[in-house]
């Protein structure tokens, strides 16, 4: 591992000053970054440990009812927070479906957003990877498989964003609060994470010297809290990344959909959301046929990037089932967490 300087600021101004040093990278739980430093895929000159900054540790509701989650809050802490369970339970469900208990105890929410793809060529500095080195190569071009994208990918990169947490966050219009030398700004999470296109090494909109200081889930999310689910399909029941996942929320009145939210994970370089799919559901009967129709719209343009065409149909079926789960959810009641694909659809 390349040598680095370790800095542990206690305040936000100290953190920003440390981030201004050349080669500095923000450090949270280390569960992804330290691993990549061991393989040689990441070579920071300095780690700025943000977990000691008190201002980044809180989970609060503001006067307008927006839920603000400090960047250094651990995934396990957030998943158990009563404020989150009431505001956006499918985010808790997604968090608890991710990684292992040990890793959830360590990983921070900002690190969850900024974590790198688990494409094996990204982690291996001897492999060609435009996402890592900004060149033209991509060893996944001829070796893409079940862990690679089927939508939103480009000739330069087939990587998938691996987060579970970000999928329901994108569905709920969550924002990223960024602080840097230019001040503070709020960016929609769905814009913050970018598609690879021609420049896959630009993976998000983080500016030089900037850090994530918080995630914000808008107050409007609470209206969907009672009928929302995160469904993750993976190759073993626990401690595996999603082959495909879906965050689905649906408000129903008189048997008809009045509002829907949908985002997919495991299939694209960022959580995949297609507003047209949600809009097309409005006014239609809350039935499996409607959910399937939304899935068809959400996956329009999907194409295998290798030996992974099965993920397209799997994604559609996952969407339909996630909506069935969401529709059957009992508003105001807690539920067993986390979800398993082997669970039966609960009785409405």
């Amino acid at each position: 591992m390349k040598a680095f300087q370790y800095l542990n600021p206690k305040t936000l101004p100290e953190a920003l000053a440390a981030m201004a040093l050349p080669g500095s990278v923000a450090y949270g739980g280390g569960t992804n970054l330290l691993d990549l430093m061991k393989t040689g895929a990441a070579t920071p000159d300095g780690l700025v440990d943000l977990t000691g900054v008190q201002a980044l540790q809180s989970i609060t509701l503001d006067d307008a009812g927006n839920l603000r989650i400090g960047a250094a809050v651990r995934n396990a802490t957030l998943a158990r927070a009563p404020l989150l369970r009431a505001h956006a339970p499918m985010v808790a469900e997604a968090l608890l479906s991710g990684a292992s208990a040990q890793i959830r105890n360590m990983a921070t929410v900002a690190g969850n957003v900024l974590q790198e793809t688990r494409c094996p060529y990204f982690a291996n500095p001897d492999a060609a990877c435009a996402r890592r080195d900004g060149g033209q190569g991509c060893d996944a071009r001829v070796h893409a498989g079940r862990e690679h994208a089927v939508i939103g990918w480009s000739e330069a990169c087939r990587a998938v964003h691996p987060s579970d947490m970000c999928v329901p966050l994108v569905a709920l219009d969550a924002k990223v609060e960024l602080s840097g030398p230019e001040g503070v700004r709020l960016v929609a999470l769905s814009d913050f994470l970018t598609l690879p296109e021609e420049t896959p090494n630009r993976r998000n909109l983080l500016g030089s010297g900037e850090i994530i200081t918080a995630l914000v889930i808008p107050a409007a999310a609470t209206a969907l809290a009672g009928q929302s689910r995160y469904l993750k399909v993976r190759e073993r029941t626990s401690f595996a990344f999603a082959l495909v996942s879906a965050a689905a929320a649906v408000q129903i009145a008189g048997g008809k959909v009045i509002r829907a939210r949908l985002a997919l994970g495991g299939i694209a370089p960022k959580p995949w959301r297609v507003p047209e799919a949600e809009e097309a559901m409005v006014g239609r009967a809350a039935t499996p046929e409607t959910y399937r129709m939304a899935a068809e719209i959400a996956l329009q343009g999907a194409a295998p990037s290798g030996d992974n065409g099965f993920k397209i149909e799997l994604a559609k079926r996952t969407v339909a089932r996630a909506f069935e789960w969401a529709a059957a959810d009992v508003p105001g009641l807690g539920r067993d967490l986390p979800a398993s694909v082997f669970d039966t659809i609960p009785e409405a």
Binding site: Y6, G30, T31, L34, D35, T51, Q102, I103, N105, M106
Partner: peptide, 18 residues
Amino acid sequence: TVLVNGARVNACLTLAVA
């Protein structure tokens, strides 16, 4: 796996300096 302040963590991904 060890406990740090009562919570289980992976010691291999924990920097001692932290």
